[in-house]
Design a protein around this nucleic acid. Structure first.
Lengths: 157, 157
DNA sequence: GAATCACTACTCGGATAGGGTGTGTCCGAGTATACATGG
DNA sequence: CCATGTATACTCGGACACACCCTATCCGAGTAGTGATTC
């Protein structure tokens, strides 16, 4: 899986903790975790295209959450970064060669594709059921001091 | 996901349908779906290392199932081909930079890693619960003529 | 005629190149700010 | 003193190289079979 998914999730949570009063630049979000700033910028752009973040250029510009965390699921972020394609793609080899199945679309009859798809559906369902608000709540339970520390660090110059 | 997973699964089912009386070469398994033979051979080697298949060299050599289909899960095949690493690897950026969490292992406190891991666990659980025997039964329900057709093709020359 | 031995042909196994996708970087388009200037 | 125009600095956005892993391929190690040879 793309490494940018982890960066995007952390950045979204950080944006929520910082607050909505002002936009945050990609450079500062990157500095907080010592990430390569231009590359994180690229990932954040993907979130903007997906409608998860909004961005403004120029001075005082940066990124903001486009909606509240309870309306952003893990699935949304994964799809925004990774793309909508599923991990297991059935290339329909069952329809190739001497043993070709000639009736209709092969994937419809392929029990393998169905079984793999069912597992992947379980994965997607789990991701879609969990919002970033849930994750934030869990994080605050584990590290109650984190939100204030983050807010203070970003407030400082 | 690695494309070889699909090839490996189809090959295992084909081996089961062919029967245990003789080993089947990688070349014939590949020919049945018009796959590149040397590359399929590489994937089958991974299955041998994982203990899913057994192999014998020389004339009359080839591959055989190491155990019955009801003792081979989709998870076994995926791990054999893809490796044991999980798709979402937490690089623990939460422990880097100014906002570093200093107490203990960061991943233990990272709610993001936990949430992503939970989703991936659901995926693995689904794969581990489904054996190749289940998949074969489903395939035979959908295409009752397939087993006989496969057996006949591999029996010919 | 039967056993033994060397040879051959065949198959797996690991080591070796090529391509595509992620990874990382750079510079240009656009904008709010600040300042100088004129009324 | 206030309004206006301009220059400036800053940020996002997309276009540009690099690297790694998957894909694909090849040749060598090992073995069962086959035939000739010998007793």
């Amino acid at each position: 899986m793309n490494e940018g998914v982890e960066w995007a999730l952390h950045s979204c949570l950080n944006l929520a903790w910082i607050g909505e009063e002002r936009a945050v630049t990609a450079a500062r979000l990157a500095a907080y975790h010592e990430l390569p700033a231009p590359y994180l910028n690229k990932q954040l752009q993907a979130l903007v295209r997906a409608g998860i973040l909004t961005s403004v250029s120029g001075p005082r510009g940066g990124f903001r959450l486009a909606r509240t965390l309870d309306r952003i699921t893990l699935m949304d972020v994964v799809v925004a970064i990774e793309g909508p394609d599923e991990a297991f793609r059935c290339t329909e080899i069952i329809g190739q060669g001497p043993g070709a199945v000639t009736t209709g679309r092969p994937s419809a009859e392929c029990a393998i594709a169905e079984a793999m798809g069912r597992a992947e559906l379980a994965w997607r369902r789990e991701l879609a059921a969990r919002t970033l608000a849930d994750v934030r709540a869990q994080a605050e339970r584990r590290a109650p001091s984190a939100p204030d520390r983050i807010r203070r660090w970003f407030a400082a110059a």
